[in-house]
Amino acid sequence: MEEVKVVYALIKNKYNQILMVDNHEGHWSFPGGRVESGESLVEAVIREVFEETGLTIEPGKILAINEGKFLKRNHHAIFFTFEGHIVGG
Rank of each mutant, 00 (worst) to 15 (best):
K12T: 08
N23V: 10
G38A: 10
F70N: 13
L63G: 03
L19E: 09
E51H: 05
K69G: 00
L63R: 14
Q17N: 07
I62Q: 00
F50L: 10
N66C: 08
E43S: 11
E52G: 02
R73W: 14
V87F: 03
P31M: 13
R34A: 02
G89T: 10
H24G: 07
E58S: 10
A64G: 01
E52T: 08
D22W: 05
V6A: 11
G88H: 06
M1E: 08
E25V: 01
H27Q: 14
G33K: 01
W28A: 08
L10V: 01
I62N: 04
K69L: 13
M1C: 12
I65C: 09
T81H: 04
H75I: 07
G38F: 05
M20L: 15
V6P: 05
E25H: 12
F50P: 00
H76Q: 12
G26A: 07
L63Y: 09
D22R: 11
V42E: 15
H27F: 06
E83P: 04
F70D: 13
F80E: 04
H75E: 15
E83D: 11
A77I: 10
K5L: 15
D22V: 14
G60T: 08
V45H: 11
K61W: 01
K14S: 12
R34C: 06
H27Y: 10
F50V: 01
F82E: 05
G84Y: 04
N16D: 15
W28D: 08
E52F: 02
G88S: 15
E48C: 11
E25F: 05
G38K: 12
K61H: 06
A77G: 00
E36I: 09
E39C: 08
G33D: 08
E58G: 03
G89Y: 01
G33H: 01
E25Q: 14
I57F: 03
T56G: 01
F80P: 05
A9Y: 11
K61R: 15
A64V: 01
F82L: 04
H76S: 14
I46M: 14
F70Q: 06
G54I: 01
G32N: 04
L55M: 05
Y15P: 00
V49K: 13
S40M: 04
S29K: 09
V42F: 07
H27W: 05
K72T: 09
N13I: 14
E3D: 11
N74Y: 11
V21I: 14
F79T: 08
E3R: 12
G32S: 03
F80L: 02
G60K: 05
E51C: 03
H24W: 10
G38I: 12
I86T: 09
R34H: 02
R34G: 00
S29C: 02
E83Y: 02
K14T: 04
Q17T: 05
F79C: 03
E25C: 04
I11Y: 07
W28H: 02
P31W: 09
F82R: 09
E67W: 14
E51G: 03
E51V: 06
G68V: 13
V35N: 03
I11N: 14
H27N: 15
P59C: 02
F30Y: 15
R47T: 09
G26R: 13
R73S: 10
G84I: 06
K72A: 12
H27D: 12
G89V: 10
